[in-house]
């Protein structure tokens, strides 16, 4: 899959530079990362440790009682390898206290609640630690909307937001992330036995090849059929991209005045930095 093959040395240099610059110039020197034991947060943590120094990175582990014990073990192994600081916050009491009041809630509600609970903890620790929250979302999940709005999507800076999942894997190998993390099936670990590919109904390898054609090469969907992609698969992915556009934007603002934030009041985020 040469088309998705990264120059990992150069990408590492760019992302380390990105974290150092975008965090440093706004007056911070430290970062907090939610470590799930999965490949995305492992890559982000490794990049942050290289960019800011391991002593300036806090890896937060926030398991729920149903989370796989392997996840915590893998995250701990990586944190030790990198020499970063860690904190463990078991979210079980606060999640259970909430859902005791709403026992009929389905797994989707519970999963989203956990993602958002972790977000509030990350932001609280970022305030306590005078750090910025470094995001772990990748391009595949952002395009497909396979992510929780204001949950795992929330961050100050997103170093791997323009890398497809298969590219994150390449970078993980380059950054010497432990094999057990690279090779386990990707999972949000929101309930037992959950895997991303099982839930999505296709593999990352397949969908990344399709997304690369639709998004990066700007191919119309019909042309993807000529490349051997099944019509149902293409239709479904195109629809997922369209339907999840709202997640990639700030809330829609009702225009009343002559100058509205983000519509005709347009400033760069790095204004004055």
């Amino acid at each position: 899959m040469a088309e998705l093959e990264l120059d990992c040395g150069l990408v590492e240099k760019m992302l380390v530079g990105f974290l150092r610059d975008e965090i440093g110039k706004v007056g911070f020197s430290r970062a907090v990362v939610g470590m799930s034991g999965g490949i995305d947060s492992s890559v982000v943590t490794a990049l942050a440790a290289r960019a800011l120094g391991p002593e300036n990175v806090l890896g937060l582990m926030m398991p729920y009682k149903t989370s796989s014990p392997d996840s915590l073990a893998d995250a701990t192994t990586l944190a030790e390898q990198l020499g970063i600081q860690t904190a463990l916050v078991d979210i079980t009491p606060q999640i259970d206290a909430y859902f005791d009041r709403f026992p009929g809630a389905d797994e989707r509600r519970r999963g989203n609640k956990m993602a958002r609970e972790r977000m509030t903890i990350l932001y609280d620790f970022s305030a306590a630690w005078q750090a910025l929250v470094v995001g772990t979302s990748n391009k595949t999940e952002w395009l497909l909307g396979y992510t929780t709005l204001w949950g795992d999507m929330a961050s100050a800076v997103a170093p791997i937001g323009d890398l497809y999942k298969t590219q994150v894997r390449q970078l993980a190998a380059h950054l010497n992330i432990p094999e057990s993390i690279i090779h386990k099936p990707p999972s949000a670990d929101l309930w037992r036995g959950q895997t991303d590919e099982g839930e999505l109904g296709f593999t990352y390898a397949e969908v990344d090849r399709l997304l690369f054609r639709l998004v990066d090469l700007r191919w119309p969907p019909e042309r993807c059929l000529e490349d051997g992609f099944a019509a149902d698969f293409v239709r479904r992915v195109v629809e997922l991209i369209r339907r999840n556009q709202y997640k990639r934007r700030t809330p829609v603002v009702a225009k009343i005045s002559q100058r509205t934030v983000d519509r005709d009041f347009r400033y760069p985020r790095d204004w004055g930095y």
Partner: peptide
């Protein structure tokens, strides 16, 4: 060189 809004 340098970064602006995530662009190097």
């Amino acid at each position: 060189v340098g970064w602006e809004d995530g662009v190097a």
